[in-house]
């Protein structure tokens, strides 16, 4: 069984069904790219994987490291080793990047879910490599932060600013990857992390992702509209999402085909399958 396994996933919001049967398997150490036109459901999938309350799973399951997490709380999924780099990161006024990271690392380190916190008795074992109970020592935290700051080529002062508060678009995206580096997830979903980055920032961020993959065996689902990022991070698998379904799967050659032909061609080809 794959580390992250999505089977027959149907997702709706209050208004309508957005995902209409998605199947996807991602293992640690694998890099996947997910592409698809605006509104096809990419962010919906990303948010659903982390348990966003606005999205209701009506059919299908999500399993992570052998556990069914379809109904798990978002923080349990994070503690289990999933990570989402948001398309639109949220500002958290009054909390510095460094303090937030320490809180997050310590939250992840806390053992399993607290007693009574989960009335339905859903628990997650395997909470990842970081479980260990003790809060992180300041010294260890500092050296890890130092390392991540270097990896992502951000200013040291950056970490004492309030998280995403008044950050530029590019700074927000870097802060997402900085958090990813610090939290060391098993599988990360990067929702358009490349949009809004200039070419140098794009390279830094992408190389950072590649390095986490090479050194720590990170598995990643890179959601993107552009070929650019895929020059720096090489995906082994490419999936095309249209109208809530994955209509095409393959290797990097798919990306090139997409650049050449656009979505219309694919839509025509798979038209009956993605009937609106």
């Amino acid at each position: 069984m794959a580390d992250l396994e999505i089977r027959g996933l149907h997702v709706r919001t209050e208004e309508r069904e957005i995902l209409r049967g998605v199947d996807l398997k991602i293992n640690r150490g694998e890099i996947h790219a997910l592409m698809g036109p605006n509104g096809s459901g990419k962010s919906t999938l990303a948010n659903t994987l982390l348990g966003h309350p606005a999205y209701e799973v009506t059919e299908g399951t999500i399993t992570f490291k052998g556990e069914d997490i379809t109904e798990a709380e978002p923080h349990e999924r994070a503690k289990a080793g999933l990570f989402l780099a948001f398309q639109y990161p949220v500002a958290i006024p009054g909390v510095s990047v460094a303090n937030f990271l320490r809180m997050a690392i310590n939250a992840k380190r806390e053992g399993g879910p607290r007693d009574g916190a989960h009335p339905e008795g859903r628990t997650l074992k395997g909470t990842g490599r970081q479980a260990g109970g003790e809060p992180i020592q300041l010294k260890e935290f500092r050296s890890r932060l130092e390392h991540a700051v270097e990896l992502l080529d951000v200013d040291r002062a950056f970490t004492s600013r309030h998280l995403n508060d008044g950050f530029s678009g590019g700074e927000k995206k870097r802060a997402e990857i900085l958090q990813m580096a610090m939290l060391a997830p098993d599988v990360a979903i990067l929702d358009e992390t490349d949009s809004g980055l200039d070419i140098d920032a794009l390279r830094t961020v992408a190389e950072g992702v590649q390095k986490l993959h090479d050194e720590q065996g990170l598995g990643a689902l890179i959601i993107t509209h552009y070929q650019r990022i895929l020059h720096y991070v090489k995906p082994q698998f490419v999936h095309i999402l249209m109208d809530g379904r994955i209509v095409l799967e393959g290797g990097v050659e798919l990306v090139e085909r997409l650049e050449r032909e656009g979505y219309d061609q694919i839509r025509q080809e798979y038209g009956d399958e993605v009937a609106a």
Partner: peptide, 27 residues
């Protein structure tokens, strides 16, 4: 702000901790 709460939850903070962060940040 529910989006802020979800954001923090996705980093491993439980809901109560996320709310605390927001309110403390507010004061």
């Amino acid at each position: 702000d529910e989006t802020a709460i979800f954001y923090m939850q996705s980093r491993g903070l439980d809901r109560a901790a996320a709310v605390r962060v927001i309110v403390e940040g507010f004061f």
